[in-house]
Nucleic acid binder design. Structure first.
Lengths: 205, 205
DNA sequence: GTCTATAAGAAGATAGAC
DNA sequence: GTCTATCTTCTTATAGAC
């Protein structure tokens, strides 16, 4: 990893733990293994480092959104995968999804950083809501919509069903970000949540 | 309001908007209408102001918990109130509860401040989880437990039913804290959420 | 309790050698 | 691109008069 990228990486780690204002340019430089003034050869100032982190996430998001065709045209394929879905398989998928977003270093650090900085300005608020509110509801909603059409799920309000699936997951994710020791407790709750969700909205056997 | 209290009040406003590190002692003093050095006659330093805010909330919480007998011994009384509950009345109650916590100035500012500072240390993380995760689940869980016994609600897992009620409300509250313009959208979603919740868990007429 | 003046120390950023 | 030296500004906090 080159220095320019390593700066972003170490800055993200620090920002996610202490917040932008509590991280000093010297702290970032220390972790990169250079002195603070050297850092200014790579970024104009401290704010430019923060901005580059946001830009990178926006870039990754766009790429992923394109790969998933989030506009809905192809969520039908995913729904097909779930067509013959047992409760056990549903649990496995939910657990994998949850643990990926919880443990993936990049996602975890970025989410925590945005949690701290979300009130700093409107743009950051929008990024937070896009990533953790609207995109998940939109993508899972599209998927559940197809599953409802296929009769795998039963509802007359896909939007609320999606909220009932995702809001508890979001809730548990924020608990684990704040208190990592509660991961076991939350995983148990996650299982019960998905089982109950399946009982409520799942196809009756 | 005396100066000592006004300092806490103005500090809370600023901390909730910018976070502790971005608020300067002079900013607080300005809003109180005194000069920064005068502030040190009331509080030892900046941290002591923050600590006093946390202490005050802990105090209020203890008082409220005692008043509600959160240990469960008396949630039966509340459940009685809900005994003859129509869907419209349930909507009204949910909406009132949501709007109170969203708009009440003290609650709103404190919640936003803790959101920003939750990762700063373990104690703050615990306060956050106590106020916005465990206490609501515990109190609403006790209430729903009694409602289940009375047959007003139907479930074989009160804990998950409570999560299914509260997590979406928590979710919508965080959206409104971050983007107040979305309040209308969230209130509409709240209504649909409660209607659906009632359809799932409510007594069949 | 409030003020002015000021000390003491960070922290961000630049200059210029190598 | 990295360093040392340094500048500048900001911020907390204290001293001491009123």
């Amino acid at each position: 990893m080159n220095t320019k990228q390593k700066i972003l990486d170490e800055a993200l780690t620090l920002f996610s733990e202490k917040g932008y204002a509590n991280v000093f340019v010297g702290d970032i430089a220390d972790r990169v293994g250079i002195k603070a003034p050297s850092l200014y050869k790579h970024y104009r100032n401290k704010q430019a480092i923060f901005d580059a982190i946001i830009d990178e996430m926006n870039h990754r998001f766009e790429e992923q959104a394109q790969a998933m065709q989030i506009d809905g045209t192809d969520a039908s394929h995913d729904a097909g995968i779930y067509e013959h879905l047992s409760e056990d398989r549903l649990l496995e998928i939910g657990r994998e999804f949850f643990l990926y977003y919880l443990h993936d270093d990049y996602n975890r650090r970025f989410r925590k950083m945005l949690t701290i900085e979300q009130f700093h300005d409107r743009d950051l608020a929008k990024v937070y809501s896009k990533l953790y509110i609207d995109a998940p509801l939109s993508y899972q909603g599209a998927l559940f919509g197809f599953m409802a059409v296929s009769g795998i799920l039963k509802t007359d309000n896909v939007e609320i069903m999606t909220l009932h699936f995702y809001a508890p997951i979001y809730f548990m994710l924020t608990v684990c970000d704040r208190e990592p020791d509660r991961e076991g407790e939350m995983l148990k709750l996650l299982d019960e949540h998905i089982r109950q969700f399946n009982r409520i909205y799942g196809r009756k056997e």
